[in-house]
Design a protein around this nucleic acid. Structure first.
Length: 316
DNA sequence: AAACGACACAACCGCCGCCAG
DNA sequence: GCTGGCGGCGGTTGTGTCGTT
């Protein structure tokens, strides 16, 4: 099915200078955008269109860079349990401040976090809805359709519908990772241990069916933490400005000199090389010239490699 | 094999704050 | 002080994929 925007794109064919192109990005457009970033840094997005380089809005260009083209992104990599835990804890802490939350997750964008949370909320809502509807309408033996598993929850949520609440087991389904993850004092991000657990005023509460609250313990109220109490450096955005420096691309050490995250003091890799991993599917053609200046193993497809973990990073 | 549902992902839209003129 | 442009952010929607029935 074609979207309206796609049809518009086809009509214009990209030939009309003042026509704004929408829809999926082509490899050529990505290349143009990367060239712009290489020359001018990740800024002046609107100039890309005003110069006639692309028929995309500045917003669209920026979004494409931030979400797809920016190096070091974990594109196509599912959230690890640790990442999920961090998101859950920080969402409880900050509310729906996805950009802020994403800044604590190297390689993740606000869009990633937002999508992850949205999916999670839908699953949770479905589970809770299933729970309440099953309990109110049928005995335990008659709600098979509600228990149908899907590709991602084949092991899943078996409702204890005789109790009108999800069983504790439901919330611990590891494959779904839907378990309630309480504030964890042993969190592997030490800095997070310092964040008082409280709900922002505008925090999006889930409204649990009666009887469920006990399974979703409220987060204790506490004064907002001083920002300075969080000592590790969020990955990503902080480095965008550095690209403005014409020498920025020359400033990197060979990867051999870089120590893996979490295994040595400094953990400099993620701080000094926040951008230079290219996403899958972006490894060929003239784009290689963009990355030729960087160590080859910097572009390792293995996004689960220690170099891009969600492990804590401290500024030394 | 087809239909359906759930999910992940990409992209757009609207609002807001900042800042230069 | 006002205004318009720009960038950042959160919400929402559209689409493709995959597993189940």
């Amino acid at each position: 099915m074609k979207t309206c925007s796609q049809s518009a794109v086809e009509r214009g064919g990209g030939s009309h200078r003042d026509e704004i192109r929408k829809g999926p990005w082509k490899a050529e457009e990505d290349e143009v955008l990367l060239n712009h970033v290489r020359r001018y840094g990740p800024r002046d997005w609107s100039s890309i269109r005003s110069k006639g380089l692309l028929q995309r809005t500045g917003k669209s260009c920026r979004l494409r860079w931030v979400n797809k083209l920016r190096p070091n992104l974990k594109n196509g990599c599912k959230f690890t349990q640790e990442e999920e835990r961090i998101v859950i804890e920080l969402q409880a802490q900050f509310g729906n401040k996805w950009a802020r939350i994403a800044s604590y997750l190297p390689g993740r964008t606000d869009n990633d976090v937002k999508n992850f949370w949205s999916s999670r909320q839908k699953r949770l809502a479905r589970i809770l809805q299933t729970s309440s509807s099953a309990a109110s309408s049928a005995p335990a033996s008659s709600s098979k359709s509600h228990l149908r598993s899907t590709k991602r929850d084949s092991s899943a949520p078996v409702m204890n519908i005789s109790r009108n609440v999800p069983s504790a087991e439901i919330l611990k389904v590891s494959s779904l990772r839907e378990e309630w993850i309480p504030p964890n004092p042993q969190c592997s991000l030490p800095e997070l241990q310092n964040i008082p657990q409280h709900l922002p005023e505008n925090h999006n509460h889930l409204v649990f069916p009666s009887g469920c609250q006990e399974l979703f313990p409220p987060i204790p109220q506490a004064p907002p933490p001083p920002q300075s109490g969080i000592s590790f450096i969020p990955g990503g955005y902080d480095f965008l400005g550095r690209l403005e420096d014409s020498n920025f691309f020359n400033a990197f050490e060979p990867i051999e000199t870089v120590t893996g995250i979490g295994e040595a003091p400094g953990n400099q890799f993620s701080e000094e090389l926040p951008f230079f991993e290219v996403s899958a599917g972006f490894r060929s053609g003239s784009l290689d010239t963009f990355f030729d200046d960087f160590p080859a193993d910097m572009f390792d497809d293995n996004v689960d490699s220690p170099a891009i973990s969600a492990s804590p990073r401290r500024s030394s």
